[in-house]
């Protein structure tokens, strides 16, 4: 059976929006387009960064490298994305300011979260949030 299930955004008439050409941005959901499903989400709280780097891991056991996204909160209460320095980073040789640097990696079994501690920084705690999305296409 074929048909369309659609909910348009506020202020947009769903029947008008379904007229060609269809703009998927007009819809909250449209059965012709796959939604970006979150398969798993989780967090690691109060993880102590004591090494250079310190690596935290989570088993996902999917058997393939997943589509993932992650965030890390440093003690300055600012959240960074994968590949970012902490908020207060300024860098110039021979010294850099800031807590450190956050990197997320994955293989077919684990997610790995590497937090690099800036030279001279004392141990500190971070909170990490991760999302694993469906494999697109």
């Amino acid at each position: 059976m074929s048909g369309i299930f659609a909910i348009s955004k506020s202020g947009i008439d769903v029947f008008d929006a379904l007229e060609s050409p269809v703009d998927p941005n007009d819809f909250i959901i449209h059965s012709g387009y796959s939604t970006f499903k979150i398969l798993v989400q989780g967090k690691l709280l109060n993880q102590t960064v004591s090494g250079q780097p310190t690596t935290f891991s989570v088993a996902h056991n999917l058997g393939y490298i997943p589509n993932f996204y992650s965030f890390c909160k440093f003690p300055d209460d600012k959240v960074v994305m994968n590949g970012e320095f902490s908020y207060d980073f300024t860098g110039h040789y021979p010294a850099s300011n800031g807590y450190g640097y956050f990197v997320a990696e994955a293989d077919s079994t684990y997610l790995y979260f590497l937090v690099y501690r800036n030279d001279g920084a004392s141990n500190f705690n971070v909170n990490i949030k991760y999302f694993i999305f469906e494999v697109v296409l």
Binding site: F5, S31, T35, K37, E134
Partner: peptide, 27 residues
């Protein structure tokens, strides 16, 4: 549940074969 074309919404459980499922969170 809304399945992708050629998949049965009543039986399909692989999220990659579904356009939408209320069992999964979204952004």
């Amino acid at each position: 549940v809304i399945a992708k074309p050629s998949f049965d919404a009543l039986t399909e459980v692989d999220p990659d074969n579904l356009q939408f499922s209320s069992e999964y969170d979204t952004l």
